[in-house]
């Protein structure tokens, strides 16, 4: 089963606000750390990626997809999501209130997950609903719609 909804189940968190973008990545990735998909190194790698290459992981306004090259930090492919009530500022003043952490073992094994994600982002109506989800159940429902 390689469905986005399955991967995100129990990996979605909600917070009011965080202190910094670094914290937002750490907190968003915590579920993956707990279920053994990643090691703490991967969190550092993701933060360093932004410091080195810029906030390009902010893929559309409001949504960031923290990720990095897998240099022994990823054990199993996985995704987790963090929704913030108040947006956090990434470098270059980019506001983000949804973080979708992507941990990919290699560059190909997770492409159907990416494809589902793309289906959500490509459709403005779906994306609006996605941005306004208030609990895990709603998120999962919208994702299942596009799968």
């Amino acid at each position: 089963m390689n469905m986005l909804s399955d991967h995100l189940k129990n990996n979605i968190r909600f917070l009011d606000e965080v202190d910094s973008w670094e914290d937002s990545i750490k907190l968003a990735a915590e579920p993956l750390l707990h279920n053994g998909c990643i090691t703490p190194k991967y969190i550092d790698d993701m933060i360093r990626n932004v410091n080195v290459n810029g906030p390009y992981i902010v893929i559309v306004p409001g949504i960031a997809m923290p990720h990095a090259k897998n240099e022994d930090g990823v054990i199993n492919t996985g995704l987790s999501l963090l929704k913030l009530k108040n947006p956090v500022l990434f470098p270059e003043g980019k506001k983000v209130n949804i973080l979708i952490v992507l941990a990919a073992e290699d560059s190909t094994g997770h492409l159907d997950l990416i494809s589902d994600l793309s289906s959500i982002l490509i459709d403005e109506d779906v994306m609006d609903q996605f941005k306004n989800c208030g609990n895990e159940e709603e998120f999962i429902q919208i994702i299942k719609m596009v799968e």
Partner: peptide, 19 residues
């Protein structure tokens, strides 16, 4: 293209392909 060749570039390519 992106740094890892797995995340954002894959998302961009997938979306563009769908379009």
């Amino acid at each position: 293209a992106c740094d890892a060749g797995a995340g954002s570039s894959a998302l961009g390519a997938t979306t563009f392909r769908k379009r």
